[in-house]
Amino acid sequence: MTVYMPLHDEIQRFGLELYAVGRAPRLPVLSVETSLFDRIRVAQAVDEQLSKWRHRADERDSGLYSVVDGIVRFRGRLWVPAGIKRDIARFVSECLTCQQVKAEHQRPAGLLKPLPIPKWKWDNITMDFVVGLPRTVRGSNSIWVIVDHLTKSAHFLPVGRISL
């Protein structure tokens, strides 16, 4: 079996292990399994603070903590001990794909609040300018846009001699 050494080095750098299954000559298949969940499971088992929190939560039957596949979750989210958080942060900082993905780091905005409905026409308006247009025969190079919120009607007025 020929091993491409740079790939082998990368696999070892990520803490992965390669092993062959069976002896029949077949097309090689690379199967990647992470040991991250095993490491989290072991770290959670020896974490004293987590065991205290779980014990308190079990006494109150609050449902904050749950165990799925031997891994403790807090409010449905994976609870990761501090030592492993450092390893994950280091991996993400070195991973090119992780750097290119722009994850949303803000909470959802929640429910939208409707705008108040105006009582009269032209009571609530918005105005804007469209600039940078070619000059017309009359010398206008911009448009002044006025929109009424109640009737959704708009006026487009040519405006001349606005320069940027």
Rank of each mutant, 00 (worst) to 15 (best):
I117S: 08
K102G: 06
N141Y: 03
K113G: 01
I84E: 01
A24G: 03
D9L: 10
L157P: 01
Q100R: 15
E17G: 04
V42Q: 09
R77F: 11
V29K: 07
M127Q: 12
L64A: 09
S66K: 10
L16Q: 05
R77Y: 11
A89E: 15
K85P: 01
A20K: 12
E17I: 03
E48G: 09
M5Q: 14
W144F: 13
F74Y: 15
L18R: 11
N141T: 02
I88Y: 07
D87A: 14
P114C: 06
S31D: 09
L18S: 07
F14Y: 12
Q99T: 08
S153I: 13
G110W: 02
G160F: 06
G160M: 06
V80C: 06
I117W: 08
N124S: 14
F37K: 09
G110L: 01
V159F: 09
V131P: 00
G160H: 04
S163V: 11
F37Q: 07
P6L: 04
N141A: 03
W144P: 00
L96E: 14
K52L: 11
S51Y: 00
K113N: 09
V42G: 01
E59M: 14
V72Q: 00
V80P: 00
R41N: 04
Q99N: 14
G70H: 06
V92R: 15
